[in-house]
């Protein structure tokens, strides 16, 4: 996978070189904490997320990271910021207004119908982001929905949770936190 690599190969993914088109600007204030010019001096222990962020303690990392060993630390740190930058973040194919895939479209429709503010990122516009997210979330497909900094699921899970009311509950909780 593209994101697996030695420190030097990982550098193109480092913080500010990763162009991410978000539907509105994420707060990138904390990105300055990223090691920008110096190569990473630390390596990830197997599967444990490196938490650079000093953000709220409930900005939990993804639960299942056992398979995420191939992710460059910079990419992980960047994604930590991105998923925490908004209450609801959807990584999808295409954009809110022009989804490029039926599954992505479905999740956009659900979020719209619930009248919840959400940000989207187009993984088709950024191959590094697309590959990095698969490792980061330990999830092989898109869309990927993050609520309150935590991976919620893909299309099937979102649809099922929408039907059962669990999605609404989770969103409500996130909005109040």
């Amino acid at each position: 996978m593209a994101a697996s690599a030695s420190a030097s190969a990982a550098r193109p993914l480092a913080g500010d070189s990763l162009t991410i088109h978000v539907s509105s600007r994420p707060q990138l204030a904390m990105v300055s904490a990223l090691p920008r010019s110096s190569p990473p001096t630390w390596r990830l222990g197997l599967g444990r997320p490196a938490r650079l962020s000093t953000r709220s303690p409930h900005a939990r990392s993804v639960r299942c990271l056992a398979a995420g060993g191939g992710l460059a630390p910079e990419m992980r740190a960047t994604l930590d910021k991105v998923v925490a930058s908004h209450k609801v973040v959807l990584f999808m194919k295409g954009t809110k207004d022009f989804p490029q895939c039926g599954f992505s479209h479905t999740v956009v429709q659900i979020l719209r119908s619930l009248d919840v503010p959400f940000e989207t990122l187009d993984v088709l516009a950024n191959e590094a982001l697309r590959q990095g997210l698969k490792d980061y979330s330990s999830w092989p497909t898109f869309p990927q929905l993050y609520i309150d900094g935590e991976f919620f699921g893909g299309c099937d899970i979102t649809v099922e949770a929408y039907k059962s009311g669990e999605l609404q509950e989770t969103l409500e909780k996130a909005m109040c936190s």
Partner: peptide, 16 residues
Amino acid sequence: LLERHRMVNTALAPHM
């Protein structure tokens, strides 16, 4: 549910 989906994904990983 999320864990169950992960289990299926893991099973399919070689084919994904």
